[in-house]
Design a protein around this nucleic acid. Structure first.
Length: 271
DNA sequence: CCGGCCACCTGCGGGC
DNA sequence: TGCCCGCAGGTGGCCG
């Protein structure tokens, strides 16, 4: 479900409720997520104060004095701040209860998500150490993309979805950004000019920034931490629109599997 | 190092 | 109504 804009929207929703609050209890109903939730989490977090929460790639990092907890939403995860009386869904796997009465609830039907302790040096942990730059940062630019693409024969769509190259570009926004930049998703990454990588970089930043502004994209059941759906779906140019006319040239949008993922594009506008 | 493929898991909608 | 199939927003790991 969530790509970077949805994770950023979640961060903005939960942060004000939890900063400076101390953990009263941890409830784990299902520890079999992508990796098992560690049994020591409860004793580790008890009475610890949330000093800050930030996002790195699609990971939410909860910083405590004793170290950092990471939560990843996988394909179907969501985080909500609820009251203690909220009914428990069968996929509500982990709660953090706070002394101010707030409760952070992690729900994840498919259980591809992650609740892991990263210790005192989170950026060197196996989950974060290999990650590429943030797409909205200044060190992600056309020069960087072009240099990393040299000699790569794989499809550019797979290239920009590779977290070692750049983080946070998932299946929706990869298709969207490539349409904006008029680049065919199956084109070899090493066969794109420096100039076109400038365009692609601008397109990636633009599409992510607009999606954040709209509160993310709601497909199926995604809602932000406050229970409000995102409204970016109405702005999607190609994703999920197979057969409908391209907004630029009216040719029908095509769907094709690239790297085992559905990809949407206009074969007129994108080369 | 790189590319291709698989796995993990549940739910939903469409077709018969 | 019910079953089966294909599809779904992520990403680490394995193999050649």
């Amino acid at each position: 479900m969530p790509e970077l804009p949805e994770v950023e929207t979640t961060l903005r929703g939960i942060r004000p409720h939890l900063i400076d609050q101390s953990v009263k209890a941890v409830v784990v109903r299902q520890r079999q997520l992508r990796v098992p939730v560690s049994r020591g989490l409860k004793s580790k977090l008890k009475d610890q104060v949330v000093r800050d929460i930030e996002r790195r790639a699609k990971y939410l990092l909860f910083h405590f004095d004793c170290g950092t907890l990471a939560i990843h939403l996988g394909m179907s995860g969501s985080l909500r701040v609820t009251s203690a009386s909220a009914p428990i869904d069968k996929h509500d796997h982990v709660d953090l209860l706070f002394n101010n009465g707030a409760q952070l609830r992690f729900r994840d039907p498919r259980r591809f998500g992650l609740v892991v302790w990263l210790g005192k040096r989170p950026l060197t942990s196996r989950w974060l150490a290999h990650l590429g730059p943030e797409p909205l940062s200044d060190n992600f630019n056309g020069d960087y993309l072009y240099s990393r693409a040299a000699n790569r024969r794989g499809a550019v769509k797979n290239f920009i979805m590779d977290g070692r190259i750049v983080v946070g570009v998932g299946n929706i926004y990869a298709s969207e950004a490539l349409h904006h930049a008029h680049i065919h998703p199956a084109r070899g990454a090493g066969r794109i000019s420096r100039h076109r990588y400038d365009d692609l970089c601008v397109a990636i930043k633009g599409v992510l920034a607009r999606a954040i502004d709209a509160g993310g994209t709601t497909l199926r059941d995604y809602v932000s931490a406050d229970g409000v759906p995102g409204f970016f779906e109405q702005q999607l140019a190609v994703y999920g629109r197979e057969g409908s006319p391209c907004g630029l040239c009216s040719a029908p949008i095509r769907r094709r599997v690239i790297g085992q993922r559905s990809s949407f594009f206009c074969s007129q506008c994108q080369r």
